[in-house]
């Protein structure tokens, strides 16, 4: 009986909650911001949330999967996304864009690069890096052999979720398949663990990484593969002999957001962070050991000039 009552009341409530008065000002309904599992993204979520709050909006944060989030924005479970990386999430983003319900809300000033690279101490193990031709050298490859790599040098790629078989295809296409093999790590954690372990051991490692990222500070170099040209990737019909593009870092919103929260949407359109700013946010957490919320608060306090102008 009690369960029935609570069920009934909840139904009544869910109807009640749908009655409200629309105003020309922003709706008080919370703006749902997704958080992913890397520091800069989480801090930026709290920074943007902080600005929204300052403007009088309600904000809610929800942990979300990096790829599935675009479908969630499209359906309306999540309102915005503030870090759309071209190389990793571009595909999910454009898929959702085509289906409708999601809007492209402009670029950040920061440009992104996601590719294979190596921590700087590795350079001496393979003379000629960062030029990719150095990888053709047998003596180079043998410094990267692991027990399970079958005698070939091993590159550690991110999870297959990120860009499918792009890197193995590239390695094959460039004729490096006899010397190198690509292993997929299961998560970003696995990449950082590998980086830390390799550093302690002083051995060579080539991993997938991106910038802006917290690894920038410790010195990380990306391999110069043949430059990216439109359509060079196998999925676009190309031969795959190219590196990653200099990518965008976009913002995306649910299609209803500009209607329900016109002011917040206008601010979010103007909002744009540079590589330096993103790096600074990440390092507050990764290097200074602050919590994500505290880091965001500190950043907002220290950079009033930067973000105040977007709210006008």
């Amino acid at each position: 009986m009690r369960k029935l009552i609570s069920l009934l009341s909840a139904i009544v409530i869910s109807f009640l909650s749908f009655t409200g008065i629309a105003l020309s000002a922003d709706s008080k309904k919370p703006i749902v911001i997704p958080t992913h599992n890397w520091s800069s993204q989480v801090v930026m979520a709290y920074v943007i949330g902080g600005i929204f709050k300052e403007m009088g909006n309600n904000v809610e944060y929800v942990p979300a999967d990096t790829q599935a989030v675009y479908e969630s924005i499209r359906i309306g479970d999540v309102t915005i996304s503030h870090e759309v990386w071209e190389s990793a999430f571009g595909k999910s983003f454009t898929t959702a864009l085509d289906k409708g319900g999601l809007l492209d809300w402009g670029d950040h000033e920061a440009r992104t690069l996601e590719d294979m690279g190596y921590p700087n101490w590795v350079a001496k193990l393979c003379p000629g890096l960062p030029d990719w031709n150095a990888l053709k050298n047998k003596d180079c490859a043998k410094n990267f052999v692991t027990p399970d790599s079958g005698g070939k040098g091993r590159m550690l790629e991110g999870p297959q979720t990120w860009h499918g078989d792009l890197i193995p295809q590239r390695i094959e296409a460039l004729g490096l398949g006899d010397l190198w093999t690509v292993k997929f790590a299961g998560s970003a954690d696995a990449l950082w663990a590998e980086l830390k372990a390799a550093k302690k051991e002083g051995r060579g490692t080539i991993i997938f990484n991106w910038t802006p990222n917290f690894t920038d500070g410790a010195g990380f170099t990306f391999i110069d593969f043949p430059p990216y040209t439109a359509g060079c990737r196998p999925e676009d019909g190309g031969d795959g002999k190219c590196g990653s593009p200099d990518g965008y870092l976009k913002k995306a919103v649910n299609a209803d957001f500009p209607k329900t929260h016109p002011k917040a949407a206008a601010m979010f359109k103007k909002l744009s962070f540079s590589t330096g700013q993103i790096g600074a946010m990440a390092s507050l957490v990764d290097l200074d050991g602050m919590t994500h919320e505290d880091a965001a608060k500190k950043w907002l306090k220290d950079n009033k000039k930067v973000w105040k102008k977007w709210t006008k």
Partner: peptide
């Protein structure tokens, strides 16, 4: 769950399905 470390089995595909169209 070992897919999070990096395996080449069914688990890796389940992980992949999370973000698959």
């Amino acid at each position: 769950i070992g897919a999070f470390i990096g395996t080449e089995d069914l688990g890796q595909y389940i992980l992949k399905a999370l973000s698959d169209k």
